[in-house]
Amino acid sequence: MKKIACLFVLVFLGAMLPIMAQPIDPSAFHGAEATKPRYRAVYQLNTGDTSVIRHALANIQNSLNDPRLKGKLDMELVVYSGAFVAYQKGKGYFEKELQSLQKQGVILAMCENTMKMRKLSRDEMYPFISYVPTANGELIIRQQDGWAIIRP
């Protein structure tokens, strides 16, 4: 009986091997197809590292520029912890990029809990920023609502 089972497995694997080993033609692959009417993603930032922040903003812009997602994308950027510097006036690091993203419909949300912990006021943030009670709460709710959570 063992020999028959082993023989069956070998025959089955032998039949499957050509199917599994077929090379993919790179010119035939064009990425995933955007078949849904809407896509939703929330980016989270919790570091003050300006290179990470710049990278995240570029990634958001790249998503907005993807021709498959044009007119189908809802985006939010949630900032907390050390990343508050991205939204802080006077630094000027990211003001133009943030304003551009907001004009394209990206929600720019700041964690009020971080502001309390760091003794920051709304006057210190860009006037075009929105606020959420906690970043973690926002991420939990968005994820349960089906949003993709992206952490650069």
Rank of each mutant, 00 (worst) to 15 (best):
K3V: 11
I4P: 02
I4L: 14
A5W: 08
A5K: 08
F8W: 07
L10T: 11
P18R: 11
P18D: 10
I19N: 12
M20P: 00
M20G: 07
A21C: 07
P23F: 05
I24D: 03
D25P: 01
A28Y: 00
A28K: 03
G31C: 05
E33N: 08
T35D: 12
Y43G: 01
Q44H: 15
T47D: 03
G48S: 08
G48L: 09
S51Y: 08
V52E: 10
V52K: 12
L57A: 07
L57W: 03
I60L: 10
I60S: 01
S63N: 08
S63C: 00
D66V: 07
L69I: 09
L73Q: 07
L73V: 12
L77P: 00
L77R: 01
V78M: 05
V79E: 03
Y80A: 11
S81T: 08
G82D: 15
G82T: 04
A83R: 00
F84L: 12
A86N: 00
Y87P: 02
G90L: 09
K91G: 11
G92N: 12
K96I: 04
E97N: 12
E97S: 15
L98P: 02
L98S: 02
Q99A: 14
S100P: 00
L101E: 03
K103S: 14
Q104H: 13
V106Y: 03
V106F: 07
I107N: 15
C111Q: 09
C111W: 04
E112K: 10
N113I: 04
K116T: 11
K116C: 01
M117K: 13
K119W: 01
K119N: 09
E124F: 00
E124G: 03
M125K: 02
M125G: 00
P127L: 03
P127N: 13
I129L: 02
S130R: 13
Y131C: 05
V132G: 04
P133R: 10
N136T: 13
G137D: 07
E138N: 11
I140G: 10
I140V: 15
Q143P: 04
D145G: 01
G146Q: 08
W147Q: 08
I150A: 05
R151Q: 11
P152W: 05
P152L: 08
